[in-house]
Amino acid sequence: MSNSIALQTVMEYVEALSSVDQDLLIELIQKRQIEKQRAEVTEHITLTLSQQDKETLEKAAAAKNKSLSEYLLEVALNLAKETPEIEQIVLSNRDWEIVTSAPV
């Protein structure tokens, strides 16, 4: 069965659910996505924090009804999206030699 047919079948089942069940399904999917993101972050990032910094971050996370991992991921992603792209300049070997041989 192709993916488009399978997706269409799933959509038909979902549309047949009551609106309450559809909302519950959406909530469940969102929670699973958050759990997956949390697992990915936990798997790849290690932070060393002072106890005071950790408590401050935990309070901020709790104020937003989020776990510490969810909060840190949200903050980090928002900051990353706001960070301007770094422009890269590619030099030829000749130009690189000119730059590196210039007097400082």
Rank of each mutant, 00 (worst) to 15 (best):
Q52H: 12
L24A: 09
L77W: 06
K66Y: 05
Q37E: 07
L28V: 09
P103N: 02
D95L: 06
L68W: 00
L17R: 10
I34S: 10
L73Q: 05
Q52Y: 13
I89A: 05
I34N: 10
M1R: 08
E15H: 12
Q22T: 05
A80E: 12
W96E: 14
E58W: 02
Q30A: 10
T100P: 00
E15T: 13
E43F: 07
E58T: 04
D53F: 09
D21G: 00
K54L: 06
Q52V: 05
L25F: 00
L79F: 14
D53C: 03
S67W: 00
K81D: 15
I98Y: 09
S67P: 00
K59W: 10
L28C: 13
P103H: 02
L28F: 12
D21Y: 01
A63W: 09
K54T: 04
S2R: 03
S69K: 11
H44S: 09
A62G: 03
Y13R: 13
D95F: 07
E15D: 15
V104W: 13
E87Y: 07
L7P: 13
I29M: 08
S4Q: 12
Q51T: 15
A63Y: 09
H44F: 05
S69I: 06
E15W: 08
I45E: 03
L24Q: 10
E35S: 14
V90N: 10
K54S: 04
Q22R: 12
E70K: 02
A61Y: 00
Q88M: 11
L47N: 04
A60P: 01
V75P: 01
I34L: 14
A16H: 10
Q37P: 02
L25K: 03
A76D: 02
T9K: 14
V75T: 05
A63D: 15
E70R: 03
P84S: 01
L7D: 07
T56A: 12
K31H: 10
Q51A: 14
L49W: 05
S4D: 15
L91F: 07
D53P: 02
L28T: 15
E58Q: 11
Q52F: 14
A76V: 02
D53Q: 11
L49E: 03
D23I: 12
E40D: 15
Q37F: 03
A102Q: 07
P103S: 01
L68H: 00
Y71W: 02
T46H: 12
I86A: 06
K59N: 11
L25Q: 03
E40V: 04
A6C: 06
T56R: 13
L17K: 08
E15R: 15
T42E: 14
E43R: 12
E55H: 06
L28P: 13
L17A: 04
S101Y: 06
I45C: 08
K54E: 14
P84W: 01
K64R: 15
T48N: 05
S19I: 05
V90S: 06
E35V: 03
T48K: 06
A16C: 08
Q88V: 11
